[in-house]
Nucleic acid binder design. Structure first.
Length: 128
DNA sequence: CGCTTGACAAAGG
DNA sequence: CCCTTTGCCAAGC
């Protein structure tokens, strides 16, 4: 449908790319905003990655309702939704998936961060 | 058409 | 380890 060769439809591409990546995150694993932006083709646009997530919250048409938005955290290994009001919920959901959070609300990114290259690899028992 | 905002990231104190 | 500043880029107004 984009009949215009010059139109910047990439903006929607960015959003779709982010959502597609989030949907690919296996349970028990997490991704960072900067990572999403990088894989989306916009390195450095970590903030925008978060903006996209914020957008899927308003639409309740079941489009992004299935997206595991909870598996998206910041590079510090902490959830960036605390001030939004559902930070506690996100931590709870991740913890229920097997992602342990520190008393400070931090998790081990080195062990839980997931990359598409790993291909839905299940978390080994060693991590359990 | 331009300023302000923001689910971020990295560096410095 | 916690807090503050700077940079970055897209979307909203």
């Amino acid at each position: 449908m984009p009949a215009e060769p010059g139109t910047t439809e990439v903006s929607g591409e960015f959003q779709a790319r982010i959502l597609a990546l989030v949907a690919r995150i296996p349970p028990g694993r997490v991704m960072t905003y900067g990572q999403l932006a990088l894989l989306a083709g916009h390195p450095g646009a970590a903030r925008q990655a978060g903006h996209v997530m914020n957008g899927l919250m308003g639409g309740q048409d079941g489009e992004g309702a299935d997206l595991p938005w909870q598996r998206v955290i910041n590079a510090q290994g902490r959830v960036s939704t605390h001030k939004l009001g559902f930070g506690d919920l996100q931590e709870r959901l991740l913890r229920a998936e097997g992602v342990p959070f520190d008393a400070s609300g931090r998790c081990d990114l080195s062990a839980r961060q997931w990359w598409p290259e790993e291909d839905r690899d299940a978390p080994p028992e060693a991590l359990f």
